[in-house]
Every structure is written in structure tokens, then in C-alpha cells.
């Protein structure tokens, strides 16, 4: 479930407000969106993928919160970690060799 918006990282572009399929965020006058309907979050991670400033964190469970803080996320380098793993960063993601990828075939 969506848990954290880092106010230090967020630039108020409101992309998350647009891309969230279940309309979890609301825009605010001061620029940084709020998580307005947390229970509606379907834990799809799309907001994280689209956030250009890696300011969002979605926890692994659909109903339970982890209570993780901005400082802990920064310390563990978790902001933007999913975007990085799908290659939505400069340079894409490094692909293992063909021999390695072949392991998944004919299973």
C-alpha cells in the first residue's frame, strides 16, 4: 500500500495524481499531493514507476502498513528502487547473458 511521499524529494508535478488508476491522491494548494484515499490503493506500484523524482514508496502488503520513515527509506536507498529495476532510468537495465536467460526457457 502507498505509504510515503517524501516532501524533500517531491517537486509537486502531480504526475502521481494523474497516473494512479484508483485515484488515491489529491492535489493541494501548496503543491505536494496528499494520500487522500489510502484504502483504495491497489498496490500496483505505478505511481512509483512514474514519479520523476523518486519521492514515493509503496509497501509490500495491500492492507498492512510497514510504518517505514523517509529517513529509513533514504538510508536503505529504497526511493526509486523499483523504477531502477525495470530500467526506467538512463541507460536502462543491464541484461544477463543469453546463456543465463535461456535458463527460463523449456522449464
Amino acid at each position: 500500500m502507498i505509504e510515503v511521499i517524501s516532501e524533500d524529494r517531491c517537486t509537486g508535478c502531480n504526475i502521481c495524481v494523474s497516473v494512479c488508476p484508483t485515484n488515491v491522491f489529491d492535489i493541494t494548494p501548496d503543491g505536494i499531493p496528499v494520500i487522500a484515499r489510502q484504502d483504495d490503493c491497489q498496490t500496483c506500484f505505478m505511481c512509483e514507476v512514474y514519479c520523476p523524482d523518486d519521492a514515493l514508496y509503496v509497501g509490500p502488503q495491500t492492507t498492512e502498513l510497514t510504518g517505514i520513515t523517509v529517513a529509513e527509506l533514504e538510508a536503505q536507498n529504497l526511493f526509486g528502487s523499483y523504477r531502477m529495476s525495470i530500467g526506467w532510468v538512463r541507460g536502462g537495465r543491464p541484461r544477463p547473458t543469453h546463456e543465463v536467460m535461456k535458463r527460463l526457457e523449456h522449464h
Binding site: 529495476s85 543465463v100 536467460m101 535458463r103 527460463l104
Partner: peptide
């Protein structure tokens, strides 16, 4: 195989890692 899996479907590992 683990390496190939992590490349092929990063989202499978996302909730587990977290």
C-alpha cells in the same frame, strides 16, 4: 536462474524484497 528471473520479472521480487 535467479539472475535470469530477477531480470525477467522485477515485479515478482519487489514485494518479497521489501
Amino acid at each position: 536462474t535467479e539472475q535470469a528471473m530477477r531480470y525477467a520479472q522485477p515485479n515478482f521480487f519487489l514485494p518479497l524484497d521489501r
